[in-house]
């Protein structure tokens, strides 16, 4: 059992007129090795939720456990927690500061008290893992493209060898090709290393193809939690929240309504293709 949230509430600006509940009674279990997508509209509390998981925000009430230890304990080692639950924020510009990419990735491991040599070794492995070409290693991170900056930012967290990797909107502001590359990279990382990955996004298309479990947040509450198929079957409710199921779901629904015998619960393009071909053969 990796991360456990028990009736967590969080209220912003608690004792002013602007008080605003961001999380309401959130209880979640996040076992080791899962690939999870957290989906929600802007302001649904998803960013607040993930910041609880590595102790950047303390809950107003409720408990959070990591490996059966309460992380809100006064003497719990927060630094250690943040190395084990890596969080990559949305904008790489918020964390890149060094003169070259390699030094920037070394920042995390060095903060953990590793020697220069060990930190460099970790940085090298991490940069290789995110697939950054060697020629960019010693370039200023500010000269890179959006997709490459994001890779360096992910490497910066990966270099701390986390057991859980949380990514906040890793595809925001990228073109379709860059998006696919980053998502491909993340899913390969999951396959190779087996670490728990939590992908935060507002786009169903992003996560549908990759994750094994989807958590839908709406107005601070967990509304749905389950396998993609199961969650997308509530596509009418998802629409009411301002979210949408993947286009594949709509396509299959319309085929069904037009009288074709297809399985409407498919979520990926490949499954849909097979399903349509099967229906076509039957005709």
């Amino acid at each position: 059992m990796a991360i456990l949230l028990n009736h967590v509430n969080y209220i912003y600006d608690e004792d002013t007129a602007m008080a605003n509940a961001a999380l309401i009674d959130v209880s979640l279990k996040i076992p080791d090795g899962q690939f999870i997508g957290i989906i929600g509209h802007t302001g649904s509390g998803k960013s607040t939720l993930i910041q609880h998981m590595n102790g950047l925000i303390a809950p107003s009430s409720g408990q959070i456990f990591f490996n059966n230890e309460d992380i809100c304990d006064r003497d719990y080692n927060k630094k250690n927690l943040r190395a084990r639950v890596g969080l990559v924020f949305q904008y790489p510009e918020h964390q890149l500061f060094e003169t070259d990419c390699f030094k920037d990735v070394c920042f995390g491991p060095k903060n953990l008290g590793l020697s220069q040599k060990d930190a460099e070794l970790r940085a090298y492995t991490a940069l290789k893992q995110v697939g950054l070409e060697d020629e960019y290693f010693y370039q200023s991170p500010f000269d890179l493209s959006g997709g490459q900056k994001r890779r360096v930012a992910i490497a910066g967290v990966l270099a701390m060898n986390p057991e859980v990797l949380i990514l906040d909107e890793p595809t925001a502001g990228l073109d379709p090709k860059g998006r696919e590359e980053i998502l491909g990279l993340i899913s390969e990382l999951h396959r190779k290393t087996g670490i728990t990955i939590i992908l935060v996004s507002h786009s169903m298309e992003d996560v549908a193809d990759y994750v094994e479990r989807i958590i839908v947040m709406n107005r601070g509450r967990v509304t749905f939690d389950g396998e993609p198929k199961e969650v997308f079957s509530h596509y009418k409710e998802l629409e009411e929240m301002g979210l949408a199921a993947p286009q594949v779901t709509y396509c299959m629904q319309e085929l069904r309504e037009a009288g074709f015998d297809v399985d409407t619960s498919v979520t990926t393009l490949l499954e849909a293709k097979n399903e349509i071909l099967k229906a076509f053969m039957k005709c």
Partner: peptide
């Protein structure tokens, strides 16, 4: 605040 959090996530002190 955001930058601080991003760096704290990398164990900055």
């Amino acid at each position: 605040d955001k930058i601080m959090k991003a760096q704290m996530a990398r164990c900055a002190d």
